[in-house]
Simulated assay, not measured.
Amino acid sequence: MEKPEKGLLGRGGKGMEVNLMADVSDCLDKYRVFGIEELVNATDGFSESCLIQGSVYKGCIDGEVYAIKKMKWNACEELKILQKVNHGSLVKLEGFCIDPEDGNCYLIYEYVDNGSLHSWLHGNKNEKLNWKTRLRIAIDIANGLQYIHEHTRPRVVHKDIKSSNILLDVNMRAKIANFGLAKSGCNAITMHIVGTQGYIAPEYLADGVVSTKMDVFSFGVVLLELISGKEAIDEEGKVLWAKTNGILEGREERKTKKLKEWMDEVLVEDSCSMDSILNVMTLAIACVHKEPTKRPSMVDIVYTLCKSDEMFYDISEDGIPPSPLIAR
């Protein structure tokens, strides 16, 4: 669901640029203000050949590669949130640009080399992520969410956690991207429901309740994707989180059997720790509980994930860590 146009954008004119610059004046000393000519040259006139996805382009300026996001709405709120956050598990904002001709706003981010988690899990890649890498990705995301939930004032709710908004760097470490729907402050009610089907928390969809627990729910769906290799919503419109009933019921042997049937076949072939996957599956199901108060906090989630004996790579005898990928 696309965020509606609002504020000053879309009407054109120099006055609008002045007003918008005034709105983001607090950001001027923290971020580089790019010129529109720099962005046009970097992206070959916003050519499709430079398009990464959606309205995000890859461009090189002064020898540095950036991800350039063309906004369809006023970026003031996003900028105000981004200037408050600084964490290694969040994609870093490097600067912004306001086109004096039409008032369009552009956000310029660090370029994250290995693309989205969604493309690694669901794309037609010849290599798949092993369990240790998936668990490390889960911990990175959890750390980023714990930071915005617990260490910003007021708290920030991302509101759009999904595998396509998780980017992987050259070392296959995860960074949370796209704060376009983020809200500063929580426990609010909104009538304007935005988000992506399959990840939206039931209380937000039904009543518009905005809280950190909606991020916890969405994170739980990402955990289910990491374990199963399945999409958050299938071709028939059925959501992944609703398919977990009964998997962890009964004796240990039954749980293991059911989980093996449900999880990504690549992980079964990898002979990874079933105890580790069982622990994360238990956590994922807790995260997608329909009752928000019964979901764990991000503090609890980080603690639970970090207890796993699969958190770190095993170091081989020659001191070289194994590949984070499984060749298919």
Rank of each mutant, 00 (worst) to 15 (best):
E5R: 15
K6E: 14
L8K: 05
M16K: 10
M16F: 12
E17G: 11
N19L: 15
D23H: 07
V24Q: 09
D26F: 15
R32F: 13
I36F: 11
I36M: 08
I36A: 04
E37Q: 14
E37A: 07
E37F: 01
A42E: 05
A42T: 11
T43H: 00
F46R: 03
I52W: 10
Q53A: 14
S55V: 13
V56M: 12
G63V: 03
V65W: 00
Y66V: 12
A67P: 02
W73Y: 12
N74E: 13
C76R: 15
C76V: 10
E78C: 10
E78Y: 05
L79T: 09
K84A: 09
G88Q: 09
V91H: 02
G95M: 01
F96E: 08
E101Q: 06
D102A: 02
N104P: 02
C105P: 02
Y109K: 09
Y109A: 09
Y111C: 11
Y111F: 14
L121P: 04
K125H: 14
W131N: 07
I139P: 01
G144M: 03
Q146D: 11
H149W: 03
T152N: 12
R153I: 15
I161D: 00
S163C: 00
S164Q: 04
N171E: 13
N171P: 00
R173A: 15
K175Q: 09
K175P: 00
A182Q: 00
A188V: 01
M191Q: 12
M191K: 15
G198C: 04
A201Y: 01
E203H: 06
E203W: 03
L205K: 03
A206D: 07
V209C: 10
V222N: 05
L223I: 10
L226P: 10
I227M: 01
I233Y: 05
G237Y: 03
K238Y: 08
K243R: 02
N245R: 07
N245T: 13
E249T: 10
T256G: 11
K257D: 10
K258S: 09
E261D: 14
W262M: 13
L267R: 04
V268I: 08
E269Q: 13
S271K: 12
M274E: 07
L278E: 03
V280A: 05
V280D: 02
I285T: 05
A286G: 11
P292D: 00
T293M: 06
T293E: 08
T293N: 14
P296M: 07
S297V: 02
M298Q: 06
M298G: 04
D300R: 01
Y303L: 09
D314A: 07
I315R: 01
S316A: 10
E317T: 04
I320A: 07
I320L: 11
S323F: 03
